[in-house]
Every structure is written in structure tokens, then in C-alpha cells.
């Protein structure tokens, strides 16, 4: 669930309020306010759309977390999702060149599981 908005990084653009698909945030005096945490589905879209890398979403979708903001600041998590997407450089060449591997890698995994199952079954396990 969304855990923290770093007010010193936030530029108060309120884009996260607008793009949150489940209406978790309200515009505030300065940084947006986490107003309806129970509606957060931990989709990380607010992090993706935050040009200031000011938002941290905790990994647990079922429970709010208590974090040490300074540790998160140093963790390398902030902005990582946006960077990995190449979100701020959509026209950069090669940006989605690995994407075609999704299907074959998924298939390879399933085939591995299938042949392992056949072996285990024959072994009578």
C-alpha cells in the first residue's frame, strides 16, 4: 500500500491524485494526502507517474507498513519503477526490445513444469 509521500521531493503537481485508479489520494495544502488507504490496490501507478520520485509504495497489499523514511530514501527504491519502465523516455530506442521475450520465457517455464510433472508422476511420487 502507498506508505509515504516525501514532501521535500514532491512538487505538488497532484498528478498522482488524478491518475490513481482507485481514488486513494486527495489534493492537500502542499503534498497530496493519503485519504482512503483501504482503497489502495498496491498497483504502483502513482510511483510510475510521479516525475519527482517522491512516492513510496510498500510491498504488502493487505496491510499498511511503518517505515523509516530516511532508510527508504537511501534504499534505491524511489524512482526505480519509473526508471525501469523508461517512462520518462518513451521514444528512446531499444526501450521495449526485450518485451518480445515475455511469451517464450513464460512458455519455457510452463514446459519445464510440465516435463517435471511427467517425471514425478512416472516415478510414482
Amino acid at each position: 500500500m502507498i506508505t509515504h509521500i516525501f514532501e521535500d521531493l514532491c512538487d505538488n503537481c497532484n498528478d498522482c491524485v488524478a491518475i490513481c485508479p482507485s481514488h486513494v489520494l486527495d489534493a492537500g495544502e502542499g503534498a497530496p494526502v493519503i485519504a482512503r488507504l483501504d482503497q489502495c490496490q498496491t498497483c504502483y501507478m502513482c510511483e510510475l507517474y510521479c516525475v519527482s520520485d517522491a512516492i513510496y509504495v510498500g510491498p504488502d497489499a493487505h496491510a499498511a507498513e511503518i517505515i523509516d523514511p530516511e532508510a527508504i530514501r537511501l534504499s534505491g527504491h524511489l524512482g526505480r519503477i519509473r526508471h525501469d519502465h523508461g517512462w520518462d523516455r518513451p521514444d528512446a530506442p531499444g526501450h521495449l526490445d526485450h518485451y518480445r521475450l515475455l511469451g517464450p520465457l513464460l512458455q519455457e517455464g510452463i514446459e519445464t513444469a510440465e516435463s517435471r510433472y511427467q517425471t514425478l508422476k512416472t516415478d510414482g511420487l
Binding site: T42, I81, G109
Partner: peptide
């Protein structure tokens, strides 16, 4: 442990939303 060996290096590049729930945990 049986995952395709080519997967770990490119997972964050193909599906950037998938590693954070693990890494952050």
C-alpha cells in the same frame, strides 16, 4: 529454482512492476 536461466537478468526490464513486491520485502 527451475525458472529459465535467461529470466532473472531481464525480469525488471520486461515487467518492472513484478520485482518490487519481493525486493521491498
Amino acid at each position: 529454482i527451475d525458472a529459465p536461466s535467461a529470466l532473472p537478468p531481464v525480469l525488471h526490464d520486461i515487467q518492472p512492476f513484478t520485482p518490487p513486491p519481493f525486493v521491498r520485502k
